[in-house]
Design a protein around this nucleic acid. Sequence first.
DNA 1: TCCGCTAACTTTGTCGGACAAACGTCGAGA
DNA 2: TCTCGACGTTTGTCCGACAAAGTTAGCGGA
Lengths: 253, 253
Amino acid sequence: MSDTQDRFERLHVSPAYQMVAEAIEREIVSGRILPGEPIGTESELVRQFGVNRSTVREGIRVLEQNGLISRNSSRRLFACAPHHNRLASRMSRALVLQEVTFRELYETAMVLELAAVEQAAERATKKNIAELSENVAKSERVMDDPARIAELNSEFHALVAKASQNRVLQLAREPAGLLFFPTTEVICQKVAEGAVRIVEANRMMLKAIREGDKKAALLWMRRQVDDWRKGFERTGKRLDQAVDKSYLRAATR
Amino acid sequence: MSDTQDRFERLHVSPAYQMVAEAIEREIVSGRILPGEPIGTESELVRQFGVNRSTVREGIRVLEQNGLISRNSSRRLFACAPHHNRLASRMSRALVLQEVTFRELYETAMVLELAAVEQAAERATKKNIAELSENVAKSERVMDDPARIAELNSEFHALVAKASQNRVLQLAREPAGLLFFPTTEVICQKVAEGAVRIVEANRMMLKAIREGDKKAALLWMRRQVDDWRKGFERTGKRLDQAVDKSYLRAATR
DNA sequence: TCCGCTAACTTTGTCGGACAAACGTCGAGA
DNA sequence: TCTCGACGTTTGTCCGACAAAGTTAGCGGA
């Protein structure tokens, strides 16, 4: 047998559940099924694909995880355009499992946050500014609650990215942001003036964004991220240490 | 019945398949199961969790999509630290379905590629430089094949990001990169000197990285991304147009 | 003794059928 | 007209089964 020349290369057969997933995925990605449209019941899919319900259900799990389909309150299936935030927490988890260091996080956050605030100063809408204002106002009311400050600061930066009107940038900064900003809690606990400086910087960034003053916006963002590094080092940790798994809880909700 | 005060809030019961997935996820994320370690057979999991095999299999699909477990050649399950590349293509798809514009892509790519090349100039290892050199050499041999040039250029930028030794930055640029660089194919087809300028810029970036010359590295990167925009506009498309679904094929492989 | 081959055994992918709980619907009664 | 309950539908889960592919053990030959 083995003396005959191989004429054909092995053909790889996808499992049926994967073909089900891919078939539905194609319909959604191509736009033939629009976000919000129902996919049909499981039995319906069983009938259409001619496979068993268990098989259909495995395919559904795949698509659900990819954010391409979802179940509404009544558990019926419908298509949805995956919002990147859903995927960002997965990426954060990947980063932690890869044991990335705080330095990697810091350097990347610096680049992305600067870009975000610069574009925000250029394009923020009234609504964006209102959201940022409310965030700053809330922060000013909880200056002595490090957890709350960290949470609001995280939200502030997400809002800045949103104000940039650049969804690609929003996506790019999200995974790092999810890991980076929760660390400000520890810093606020250890460094007395931590919270004050954070909220001051945010207030100044808001002002700069409102006035369209890119220079000032960049200045205060840089100052805040720099502050983060100084504060971080003052808590006794080193930048080249890996980001702890404990930050995942905050990042993955 | 309804006149009695609500004493308890509705308790939300997760489906069994989800609990299976979460239980295994916890073990991996916490480090009690290390990447590469086997998870056990389906029957084994059936025995441990006391649920049906169909239920276990649905849980497995969830984890597989999250990149936390995988099947090796013999289809046995084992844990793995999700490599972000796996997730990046899903993010690219999310971006396309959100109909992000080429402008968003361009602006973000500019920021991220500049940061990547700057850090690469600072930290590239011999191995990184060898990889980059080989990439440039390959490109020089296929100057008249736009598809191949686009592919190699995409790889070049991925290698630059790798040379930055910053995995968070690598992750952040990947989704945009997957969509951005395939577009160079069309540009090379329409703009005569396109391929020449791309390869020249890459050659100069390689030189700058080898010499640790950040300034030059930044200059050539900026020039290449600027070139992209000019070339893009010369093909008759507008920056504010949404990224086409057709680019997904290249991005999701 | 060591190596290769065959025959079990195991595991995965798929199937058919089944049932309880939750949900939606629709008609009867207030 | 509005409310409520019976009914059918759908989902989540279970059981049992089988073919195909992979793995292991044992056997025979060199």
